[in-house]
Nucleic acid binder design. Sequence first.
DNA 1: TTCAAGCAAAGTAGTTCGCTCGGAAGGGTC
DNA 2: GACCCTTCCGAGCGAACTACTTTGCTTGAA
Lengths: 147, 147
Amino acid sequence: MKLSTRSTYGVRAMLALALSDGQSPLMVKEIAERQHLPATYLEQLMVLLRKASLVTATRGSHGGYVLTRPAADISLADIIEVLEGPLVLSECPTGVGCCSHPEQCALVDIWEEASQALIQVFANISLASLVERQRAKEMNTVLMFNI
Amino acid sequence: MKLSTRSTYGVRAMLALALSDGQSPLMVKEIAERQHLPATYLEQLMVLLRKASLVTATRGSHGGYVLTRPAADISLADIIEVLEGPLVLSECPTGVGCCSHPEQCALVDIWEEASQALIQVFANISLASLVERQRAKEMNTVLMFNI
DNA sequence: TTCAAGCAAAGTAGTTCGCTCGGAAGGGTC
DNA sequence: GACCCTTCCGAGCGAACTACTTTGCTTGAA
């Protein structure tokens, strides 16, 4: 029951993009360094994010990635679903065993409720609000340090 | 991001126990048949549930398993945590990379929030209420069928 | 035309998953 | 005590998945 590193790396990469000015594209190597991620692996993930239209790539020198939409319009759920697959905690293989009668199985509802709870959390957090949280936290630590 | 079959099988096995009268123990083979689970695999899971004191085993003929506590005192979270491990969606390997400063990382909080959301769902559903739901659903289907 | 970037596909070492098997240990029954 | 019956335990195993790396191609700005 862990998120794969794909999701977490992906979110961190998107956070890096959101934290940058958004003018000039950020290249994979740069993102990887800022977030301490394996660059060649991250490359793969960025391609997936591009195919999902969450980021836009420009090739050639001085290329890299930018967010396709404003950070406020991208939720963590968007990112995670691309890299993790649909957030469904359990699927009853319909037509087999107990689940030949899914309409009689109370557990189907339970798994659905749990999945929805997860999705809600991630859907309610946009990249923009993540940036805010991040800035607030950093600010806080600095203040703490000064006291 | 799926629950393993361990959890779902385990919950179903516990449901079977809760649905039984609770007087005479239910043996693995019987549980497996009622829930259409692979018996030899389920055997392993039952041992884990016993070690977690959720069920009590009696060996020898007419042996089997019973719930240790009343069904109302056992939550799905109890069962799932035993079989799935702690419900923690992501752990920052402290001391490495970005997480050498976890107090500055907004994501730590996010993963924690999401984990808590999940745990809440499962903690709020007891085996007893699962039994209720199950009975209600079956009743419903029968009624639907009669109309 | 060069060369820095993204893109694509394959490979790989390690781990986990779902499950089986064989046999030992414990416990009623005759 | 002999004999089932059931749980308990450890080993094993193939398939899938994870987290990468490698290699080589394509694209496009300078």
